[in-house]
């Protein structure tokens, strides 16, 4: 009886999570007359076609936005890790109260509204020739991801007992070789999580992207522009290719996406 309830719940949630994706696939692979052009579009496949996709990829520029998104996201992930590791390590060594204060300040930065930052920055960026560029966008997105990455990393680093570091020092390791031989390997899952979350954030990011890189847009912005222009099928087709690799990635790296990392600062 108890189990029945669990299963009913499980099935409801499964449907809830999957139906929107199903609809997306349905529209992408059905002839338009069964989807966008009908008043009550059927909920199942009445016909199957690849022509929507073929049309979208041949008629519209897809590759450039895709690559731009990819490079920006990767750059965001890499910067987050490169800066986040030393910052997280430093924070994990500070006494509790001070570290807490820093984290609060970091998270405040993370919360400053994108629009507030983006509008004045766009002016500066034009001057600095960073407007519409990959590094420029990545740098600004770092505002949001870096604090989160530092937060996650300091959480994972703090979980490593300090005796292990003492031991490494006594065993003759310098700070650098402690980091590379012990701390980073031990904290690898947390590092992967920080990278992944930064990467996924950037891949998804819209506010900065639309304001600071509208001429050569990233993929989400390109999809939005297509919707605005009424090229809905192209938008759907792009959405699909945009989504599937990330879902696959998410599923493969699922074990790294744990709530513990996000709750990094929660201590008992």
């Amino acid at each position: 009886m108890r189990n029945l309830l669990v299963y009913v719940g499980a099935i409801i949630f499964t449907l809830y999570f999957l139906i929107p994706l199903y609809i997306l696939v349905l529209i992408a692979f059905s002839p338009a007359k069964f989807t966008l052009e009908s008043l009550y579009p059927p909920l199942y496949f009445k016909g199957f076609t690849l022509s929507n996709l073929v049309y979208a990829f041949t008629q519209y520029n897809f590759i450039h936005p895709f690559l731009k998104s990819f490079f920006v996201a990767s750059l965001v992930g890499i910067i987050a890790i490169l800066l986040g590791i030393p910052a997280g390590y430093g924070l994990s060594k500070l006494p509790g109260k001070l570290a807490y204060a820093f984290i609060v300040v970091l998270l405040i930065t993370n919360m400053v509204p994108g629009l507030v930052v983006a509008i004045p920055i766009s002016v500066e960026f034009i001057k600095l020739h960073l407007f519409d560029s990959i590094p420029g966008l990545a740098l600004v997105q770092e505002l949001v991801t870096l604090p989160l990455a530092v937060f996650i990393l300091q959480g994972t680093f703090s979980a490593v007992p300090k005796e292990v570091e003492y031991q490494a020092r006594i065993d003759g390791a310098s700070t650098l070789s402690y980091l590379s031989n012990v701390l980073i390997p031990v904290a690898l899952p947390g590092i992967v999580a920080a990278f992944l979350i930064s990467w996924m954030f950037s891949w998804d990011e819209f506010t900065y992207a639309v304001l600071l890189s509208p001429i050569h847009p990233t993929l989400p912005v390109e999809i939005y522009f297509n919707i605005e222009r009424g090229n809905e099928l192209a938008a759907v087709a792009f959405s699909l290719v945009f989504t599937i690799p990330v879902i696959v990635l998410t599923l493969i790296l699922q074990k790294y996406l744990k709530g513990e990392y996000l709750a990094g600062g929660v201590k008992y």
């Binding site: 999570f17 997306l24 966008l36 909920l43 989400p220 959405s239 989504t243």
Partner: peptide
């Protein structure tokens, strides 16, 4: 279920928005 439950995380906001706009269209919505 636990796998399915994190799928939306991999779906970009824009994509989610488009999909839901198709679902809740006044004419031609699912």
């Amino acid at each position: 279920l636990s796998t399915i439950s994190i799928i939306p995380m991999g779906v970009a906001t824009v994509v989610a928005a488009i999909t839901f706009s198709f679902i809740f269209q006044t004419s031609g919505g699912y």
